[in-house]
Amino acid sequence: MSATDFSSDIAARPGVSLAEPGDFISLLKPRVMSLVMLTAVTGFVLAPGSIHPFLALVALAAIAVGAGASGALNMWYDADIDRLMARTARRPIPRGRITPEGALAFGLSLSILSVLTLGLVANWFAAAFLAFTIFFYAVVYTMWLKRSTTQNIVIGGAAGAFPPMVGWAVVTGGISLESFVLFLIIFLWTPPHFWALALFKMQEYGKAGIPMLPNVAGRAATRRQIFAYSLILAPVGVAPWMLGYAGPVYGIVSALLGLNFVRHGYKVLRMDDADTAMLPAKGLFRFSLIYLFTLFMLLLAEGVVTRFVGVGGF
């Protein structure tokens, strides 16, 4: 029996766990958590109003834990298909490090803890929004959309786009057009980002039976969709400056990044599918990470500078 078979066999045995602290950290999807924290704190800083810095830190930690809980619930439910894909086969459950029951209990416990904490330190609207976000990712996306429709990423992407709105709600107790624009940037970014990945991971998704767009509609249709979303995303990325809650530096940089995103999208559109290297798709995938990170870092930096130059503090 190979090491992989042995790990899978252990993972299938109820009550058996080889977990170490690092395995539970992996369940939280720390890279996703870091993006959630960046976008949520951007919502904090840009929102009108104030919140005590200590409460802001606790609230941010609660949102991050809520995101981690979503990741744990996702890994619990997707353990069967994670074993079939190279990019997910090293996760704790497929490796036999954590039992599915342990991951489920961990995810549910953190979900409850994060929502209650956010309600107590901030407000119950923000807490309810966080609870809805966890539910949307774990149930609507993971349990329903992911395995049933090619629009899984489009609709399910809303879960990853909610954190800046939750951050905004922590400060204001509600939502606004400005926070919705932050949501919309991430929402429109998600399909071209993941479809670019899906283009060069088609075999893995096909093996796992996930109906990603390239596997169902074909590469040509996917490439057209990626380019279309790139054209829509580029002007929306500039919207915070157009609406007056981002400065000229953000306006210029976001416009240049948006044009570059469209350039990458066009290269994908013109891509030769016979090229197994899939370099245009890989290039768009990598650039999309830079694009989103840069936009929100600029928004955050400008927001921090404005607050300290103005009234100061959170």
Rank of each mutant, 00 (worst) to 15 (best):
T42L: 05
A105P: 03
S230L: 02
L284P: 01
A67H: 04
G173R: 11
W124F: 15
V268A: 05
V32C: 02
V166D: 01
S8P: 01
G157Y: 03
F183W: 13
T142L: 10
D23V: 02
L84S: 09
R307M: 00
L177Y: 08
I98C: 08
P53W: 13
L84V: 08
V268F: 06
S254W: 08
A217E: 14
F261P: 00
L289K: 02
V268I: 09
A281L: 03
V216I: 15
V268N: 07
Q151M: 13
L299N: 04
G22Y: 02
W189E: 04
E204D: 15
D272M: 09
E204P: 12
V121R: 11
L110G: 14
D82W: 03
L231F: 11
L104I: 10
A11P: 05
D275W: 07
G15Q: 10
V238G: 06
Y266I: 01
L28M: 15
W195N: 09
Y229W: 14
F287E: 01
N260I: 01
D9Y: 11
A159R: 07
E20M: 13
P191C: 06
I153M: 10
F125I: 12
N152R: 10
S70N: 10
L113W: 11
D23Y: 04
M1D: 07
G258C: 09
L184A: 14
Y229K: 12
Y291R: 02
F180H: 06
P214M: 09
I185E: 07
L108M: 13
L213A: 13
L213E: 11
L284S: 03
E178V: 00
Y245P: 05
M271A: 14
R147V: 06
Q203H: 15
L116P: 04
V253H: 06
N74G: 10
R223V: 02
W124D: 06
D275H: 08
V268T: 05
A221W: 02
G66K: 02
S114N: 11
V309G: 13
G156E: 01
G68I: 01
P240E: 11
G102N: 10
L27T: 04
K201R: 15
R219M: 12
P235R: 14
I112P: 08
R87Q: 11
L295W: 01
G173W: 06
A19G: 12
R263K: 14
K29I: 08
V181S: 10
L188P: 04
K146R: 12
F125Q: 08
K29V: 07
F200I: 09
L108E: 00
G102Y: 09
A208S: 07
V65P: 03
V249G: 07
L188T: 05
A161Q: 08
S230N: 10
G107A: 13
H52E: 15
